[in-house]
Design a protein around this nucleic acid. Structure first.
Lengths: 225, 225
DNA sequence: TTTATTATGATAGTATTACTATCATAAATA
DNA sequence: TATTTATGATAGTAATACTATCATAATAAA
C-alpha cells in the first residue's frame, strides 16, 4: 500500500502552487538538484529554466524569487521531518527514548522517500545543512516571520521542547536546547565534512558520532539533579 | 597610554592591504556600516563606493569581491576576539573560570574599542551574528579553507577546546563543544531578537540569559563523572 | 631635485542577474 | 462550444559584478 504524505504549505510562499502541475513539480525537483550541485549563491531562475526546458518567465509564475523558493524548500523539509518524527516515535512512550530517536533522525542522512517523487529528500537534507540558515539569516526575517514562513521550523522546535520537558520538567531552557540540537545536528555535519578541525569527527566522518555527541550533551543536561 | 592591537591578516584575502591607506580604512569602516544597516545580500561595491565617495573600481582594487570582504571582516573579528579573550583571561588560572569568562565574552555584545578607529567592533559583532556563517556556508568552502581563510576561527575553536580539556581531560568532544559554544552564542542571540519562540529568552531579551544557558549546558557536561 | 613608482579618480564597457510585460497557443473546464 | 487558465516564446529594463584604460596626484627612490 502506498500512502501519500501531504505537507500543507503556506500559500504566501508561492505564486502558483508548485505541487499542482508538472512544471511546478519540475521546478521543485530541478531546483533541489541545482542548489545541491552548485550552491544557492550561483543558483538562478535562468539556469533552472534551462535545466527544466522551460523559460525564466515560467519559473517566475511559480515563485517570486529564489529566496522564496529556498524558504519553501526549507519549510517543506521541516514539515516532512516533523511528520517522520511523529511517525517514527509514535509507539515510543518513554520521552528519553523518544528524544534519542529524534536526535538520530536529525543527525542522520536521509534516504530518498519514494512517496514524493518530485522531492529528493536525501539531497534536500544536504541543502538544509549547507543553505538552510540562509532562509532566516536575512534582513527580511521579521516580515517573513510575520507571514509564518518559519512555522514548520518553529513547530518542530516546540515539539522537541515539549519532549525535553517530559524528560525533565525542571529544565530551564527547553526551547533553546531544542534549537541547539537542531542547528548542531546540521552544523556539526557541515563542519565534519568541510572544516573538520572544528569537530571531533574528522577521522571517521561518521554521523553516528554526531549523534553520540548530541546525546551526551543533551542527556547530561537533562539528568542533572 | 594607547596600545595598538595589530591583527595580522591573511594576505590572500585582499588585493591591496586595506589597513595601509585611508581609502582602505574607509572601505572597512563603511562596509561594516552598510552591511550592518542593509544586510549582506543587498550590499554591493557600487553602494559602498558611493557611500565612501570613491568609485567602484577603487573598491575592486582592495577586494576581489564582496565574499572576500566578508571573509576578511569575519577573520578580523575572530582574530580580535581571540586577543580580547587572551587578554581578559590572562590572569585567570582556574580553567573553569576561564571558560566562563570566554562564554561571557562570546555571548555579550561588544563595546566599540577606540583603539581601532576604522573598525566598529560593536557593529561588527552584530554582523558576525547575522552574516558570519555565510562566510563558510558556500560551495567554495574547501578552497577557502585550503587558503587558510578560516584560521582565526579555527584557532579560537582550538583555544576553547584546550581549555575544555583542562576542565575535564576525559571529555570526549572538546572541539565540537567549542564550536557549539561559539555558534550558539550567536544563534541564540539572533533567535532571541528575531525568532524568539526558538529560545527561552523572549521576554527579557537579555544576553545574560544566553550566558546562563551556555554555562548550564557546558558545565553539566564537563562536571559529569 | 628629478625620476620613477604607485594610488586614486574618472569614465567606459560587458556579461549576467533579476526581474516585468506582451502575445500566441495549447490544454483543461464550464 | 465557449471560456478560462497554463505555458511558451520573445522582448525589454535596471541593477549587479565585474574588467579595462587613461590622466593625475601623491610618494618614494635615485
Amino acid at each position: 500500500m502506498k500512502m501519500q504524505i501531504q505537507i500543507t504549505m503556506n500559500k504566501a510562499l508561492y505564486l502558483r502552487d508548485p505541487e499542482s502541475s508538472e512544471l511546478g513539480k519540475n521546478i521543485l525537483q530541478h531546483s533541489i538538484q541545482l542548489i545541491f550541485k552548485n550552491g544557492f549563491e550561483s543558483f538562478t531562475f535562468k539556469k533552472l529554466a534551462e535545466d527544466i526546458g522551460t523559460t525564466e518567465a515560467g519559473v517566475y509564475r511559480y515563485f517570486e524569487n529564489k529566496h522564496k523558493l529556498l524558504v519553501y524548500l526549507t519549510a517543506w523539509y521541516w514539515g516532512w521531518l516533523e511528520f517522520q518524527i511523529r511517525f517514527q516515535t509514535n509507539n515510543i512512550s518513554n520521552p528519553i527514548s523518544k528524544l534519542k530517536k529524534i536526535i538520530t533522525l536529525l543527525a542522520s542522512s536521509v534516504k530518498d522517500d519514494e512517496q514524493t517523487s518530485f522531492i529528493n529528500e536525501s539531497l534536500l537534507h544536504q541543502i538544509i545543512i549547507a543553505e538552510g540558515s540562509k532562509a532566516y539569516l536575512t534582513k527580511q526575517v521579521n516580515e517573513d516571520n510575520k507571514q509564518d514562513f518559519f512555522k514548520p521550523y518553529k513547530d518542530l522546535c516546540a515539539l522537541i521542547g515539549h519532549i525535553i520537558l517530559e524528560c525533565n520538567a525542571k529544565y530551564k531552557y527547553p526551547k533553546s536546547l531544542a534549537s541547539t540540537i537542531i542547528e548542531m545536528a546540521h552544523f556539526q555535519n557541515f563542519f565534519m565534512n568541510n572544516l573538520p578541525s572544528l569537530t571531533d569527527f574528522a577521522e571517521n566522518k561518521e554521523e553516528s558520532e554526531i549523534v553520540s555527541f548530541l546525546n551526551d550533551l543533551v542527556f547530561t543536561s537533562l539528568n542533572k539533579k
